[in-house]
Design a protein around this nucleic acid. Structure first.
Length: 171
DNA sequence: TAAGTGCGTCGTT
DNA sequence: AACGACGCACTTA
């Protein structure tokens, strides 16, 4: 699934730790949660920032801060999802249509992209989401109002939903 | 009710 | 051919 060519990796400090945003020539192509093994960002990436990337990064920082506060989305730069398969991109686009404070089931996502039987595959695509939080895969729950899974810590899924005012199921 | 099993299903590796 | 961030029917306790 050879990923996009990363041009810049920039930190985003938040009240929940330091996230890392990745940009290709086309736009935002990745976002990762704060991690213990805090990757030092190459100093080189901080110099010679194209104004376009500065602008993108400002938008992403603001959007992330809002999202972490459970607020509806702000303006985002173009997203570079080209690394995903056609199916994955379909799913990721669908996720962006889930309103803040709302949730869909994996089955509903599957239906919304015209593949009603691909529920399980939708789970796989959610797990491959390169831009969590901003592409809100945390808003997808399992049927029967169960929580379902999450690639990063399940606590992130709980926390994000909780901040959006969603009544989070126990399991 | 709650928890566990089995199987259909389908995109990805 | 094997493996899932699934869903459903069905069995147990």
């Amino acid at each position: 699934m050879n990923g996009p060519k990363i041009q810049f990796e920039l930190e985003i400090p938040t009240r929940d730790g330091v996230f890392c945003a990745r940009y290709s020539r086309k736009g935002l192509c990745g976002l990762s949660f704060p991690s213990r093994e805090a990757r030092l960002v190459d100093a080189r990436t901080r110099e010679d920032l194209p104004s376009e990337v500065k602008r993108w990064h400002g938008m992403v920082s603001a959007a992330l801060t809002r999202a972490l506060a459970g607020q509806p989305p702000a303006v985002l730069p173009p997203l570079d999802l080209a690394a995903g398969t056609a199916f994955q991109q379909l799913v990721w686009r669908a996720l962006q249509r889930i309103a803040c404070g709302g949730t869909w089931s994996y089955g509903q996502v599957a239906e919304s992209i015209g593949r009603p039987k691909a529920t399980r595959a939708v789970g796989g695509a959610c797990g491959a989401n390169p831009i969590p939080v901003l592409i809100p895969c945390h808003r997808v729950l399992a049927a029967g109002n169960r929580l379902g899974g999450f690639s990063a810590d399940m606590n992130w899924k709980r926390t994000l939903l909780c901040r959006e005012g969603v009544r989070v199921p126990e399991r």
